[in-house]
Simulated scan of single mutants.
Amino acid sequence: MKQAAIFDMDGTLFQTDLILEQSLDDTFAHLRSLGAWEGETPIATYRNIMGVPLPKVWAALLPDHSEKIKELADSHFLKRLIDNIENGKGALYPNVKEVFLYLKEKGVAIFIASNGLPDYLTAIIRFYGLDEWVSETFSIQQIQSLDKSGLVKMILEKYAIQTAVVVGDRLSDIKAAKDNGLLAIGCRFDFAKDDELVQADWVIDNLLEIKSILT
């Protein structure tokens, strides 16, 4: 396999913001019902760290809570996210399937490298039928370091990929590209930050722009 495009999921292919707030609200409502949380749901804090692996999310949102409570929050949050996906409350960003079709026609293999958990990613792939185009989806849980650079390296080695681009909205995606000698396409979408995107080789406002970049 010679050429590939490696995509992030949240904030790049999938509009996570459509189900994020409700799922997080439900999770913290559950914690409140158990007497494990007081006050409002820390939505703003989560938005600031959106894109990091979930263990780091709970370390930031629940720094003074036990591992048992963090695991409980993790489980409930994942369940609510999947429920919302399967109930059609989420959405792909515009033109995802058009870009995927274009890449497949050009012989470019498509992979997903995400900080999301496997069951969550599977729910998105299944609901939107993305397995028609995506060769394989990789979760950060597959690598002990929880480092996206290592996850991208795993894809390159497994499939003997010679050239690739990494497409994502956050610094971890750009860094994963640079650490592996790849080109980075930054997406100026919902959770993106300009001070991070400046480090990408290209910055796009619509996934269709990938067609002209790869041409």
Rank of each mutant, 00 (worst) to 15 (best):
S139Y: 07
N115Q: 12
A36P: 01
D173C: 08
G116D: 02
F111W: 05
G168T: 05
I82F: 05
D173Y: 05
L72W: 13
L81R: 04
A192T: 00
I43W: 10
P55Y: 09
N48T: 08
I174Y: 03
S114K: 06
T27R: 09
L54K: 03
S139M: 05
G129H: 06
P42F: 15
G129Q: 11
L101C: 11
V203F: 07
L92I: 11
M1T: 07
R126D: 15
L146F: 14
I143H: 06
I155A: 12
T16A: 04
T137P: 10
D25P: 00
I43H: 14
S212E: 15
Y159G: 08
I213K: 11
A73N: 10
Q22C: 03
I112G: 03
I124G: 00
L13C: 05
I174Q: 02
D83T: 14
A177D: 06
I185Q: 02
W202N: 11
R126V: 06
I140M: 04
E98F: 04
K175C: 02
R32C: 06
T41P: 14
L146N: 08
Q22R: 12
Y128G: 09
S33L: 03
M1K: 07
L101P: 00
C187H: 01
K89D: 11
S139G: 04
N95Q: 13
L207R: 09
I140V: 13
N87P: 02
A176S: 15
L146H: 13
Y46W: 12
P42T: 14
I49V: 14
D173N: 06
Q3M: 11
S33T: 04
W37C: 04
Q144L: 03
D190P: 00
I112A: 04
L18W: 02
P118Q: 07
D83W: 10
L31K: 14
D8I: 06
D8K: 09
L207S: 11
L197T: 04
T215W: 04
L207E: 07
V203P: 03
Q15L: 00
F191Q: 05
A192Q: 01
Q142C: 00
L182K: 05
A60S: 14
F191T: 02
G39L: 09
D179F: 13
S75V: 02
D179S: 14
D64F: 13
G39T: 04
E38P: 02
G168S: 08
F127M: 07
F28S: 07
D194I: 08
W58Y: 15
G107S: 06
A4K: 06
I125T: 08
